[in-house]
Amino acid sequence: MAARHEAPMRARGVSGVLKGIKRLLKMHRIFIAQDLKKLMEYKVDFLTGMLGFIVYQTINLIFLWVIFSNIPALKGWTYEQIIFIYGFSLLPKGIDHLFFDQLWNVGYSYISRGDFDKYLTRPLNPLFTVIVERFQVDALGELIVGVALMASTVGSVSIQWSVLNVILFLLILPFATLIYTGIKIITTAVAFWTKRSGQITHVFYLVNDFAKYPTTIYNDVIRNVITYIIPFAFTAFYPASYFLTGENPLFNLGGTVIAAAVLMTVGVLLWNKGMSVYESAGS
């Protein structure tokens, strides 16, 4: 995404763009390596963080289990199907959390304290640097639970894991992830005007809780908001329901791609506009 802005001026044409992307990927690997070194330094912290997210998700599961031990189905969805949707919702959330976590700090403090200046002094696109700067291993907790949940439903939900569906599944995940990232970029960019926007990001981010359950349980207002305005429903319920029922691939999967494209475009445009009005807090 950011590669377009990053290609050095002298490099033109396809080979130039490829070179730019290659450079960015190399930088990303360096950032990840740095974070892994930190990880080895603070092993206990890593385990607590990951355990925290595993326990948090497990408790939500116990909640679902208590509910389903008393009712056969929730508005027509079986326990296994709900678990599948729930597990699905954790994957894009976890991937975004794993790779693109640094955005939070920009909205919470970097801009208001003037720490953002450091990105402007580097020969790298600031948005790209911010996005990949931190490799947040805590997210492995979410990813492990997500994969385990989806694996546990194999056999009990009627999904045809044909080659096509596996490919679609792998293709849709990055787009679902970019919905998270896009919303974070947009709300973080607000801080260029307001100095702090961490709390705004937090509120928007929490809307993802709605996506873990079938949208059919909500009223029209909420359903429309999570479909068209803050489209978290496309990170979990819609794509997951395609795999569960095979219905409406155009809306269920296409919607995810469109939502991701729109949010990322708006995010990058707003970010660039914000950068042009950025004034360091100075100190």
Partner: peptide, 17 residues
């Protein structure tokens, strides 16, 4: 611990349950 964020998530999750 250095990672207070993670240990706080752990604590809050356990307490909420």
């Amino acid at each position: 611990l250095k990672n207070l964020w993670g240990s706080n998530v752990l604590k809050d999750a356990i307490i909420s349950f």
